[in-house]
Write a protein that binds this DNA or RNA. Sequence first.
DNA 1: ATAATTCCTATAAATTCATGTTGATATCGG
DNA 2: CCGATATCAACATGAATTTATAGGAATTAT
Lengths: 151, 151
Amino acid sequence: MIRLSTKGRYGTRLMLNLAQHYDNGNGHKAVILKNISDDERISIRYLEQIIIPLKINRLVKSIRGAGGGYILARKPEDIRLSEILHALEGNCCLVECVEDESFCEFIETCPTFPIWKNATEILKGYFDSLTLKDIVGMAEKKSKQGKTKAR
Amino acid sequence: MIRLSTKGRYGTRLMLNLAQHYDNGNGHKAVILKNISDDERISIRYLEQIIIPLKINRLVKSIRGAGGGYILARKPEDIRLSEILHALEGNCCLVECVEDESFCEFIETCPTFPIWKNATEILKGYFDSLTLKDIVGMAEKKSKQGKTKAR
DNA sequence: ATAATTCCTATAAATTCATGTTGATATCGG
DNA sequence: CCGATATCAACATGAATTTATAGGAATTAT
Ligand code: FES
Ligand code: FES
């Protein structure tokens, strides 16, 4: 399987959770990991590890102490999925050599290299086209539809 | 990183190697793993494991005993990259739930599900558009260019 | 028979995934 | 100031998975 690691998946859900609770009125209401843990059923300990690179890459801000928590560093419409995955995974290549050309020895003659490279670019393009706001919007629309259909 | 496993990568190179040695004149010249191992710098023992699913999914035929080896079960133009990856990885989804919907509990409400699903379909579409012949052709063209350019 | 080769099973090594521990540091409300 | 709440940091640990190697049995051409 071509796998998106749990780090990438859980980190994306973490960011979406923050986006859903993002207060546009600038109330700066921080969300605590415990809540995200309950919502998303991911252990707090693991979330703590996952949020570190998100903080380092300035996608979230932390507020320490009582009443603290995390908030998005920017508006949801200004954060792209590609940035999140890049922060979490270092890169989002299908194979190492696409980003680090010294990884494979025979990159010049390797017949698969252009394939993995193209595929990576296609994926990146898709993830780059989506902001957190887009994704939250898609999810809201979907859940509204679900309620309308009586089933 | 969104990773294609070594199984998928090595298996693809294995198949390409067989495609490059495929005899259209129906000479049925089998290729032994030792040669592929030398060409691709992958341990024979590992290749033996990787080729099993390729055999089960009837992408290669094996000929046992002395003078034996492996050959493609079909012509290179009739084998798609998507088939190879599917054989090797069981599926080629970014996340398990795209193929096995019971994998995640809250698939109905999960805001990331449609994203991973779309991305998976985009990738699959690309891999489905390529046959072994296409890839070998691309590689040959590239190596010819390399020779022309005196550098 | 012998050599070549696939086939089968076991297992070692490395990495990823996930939880746990301890304790320090920062902040808020009372 | 005190006590509760949370982040922060550095580990440790175990389970699961992936990656890779190894030994030998079965099969076949010569
Ligand atoms: S897989 Fe990296 S160059 Fe072929
Ligand atoms: S990741 Fe599987 S449903 Fe959300």
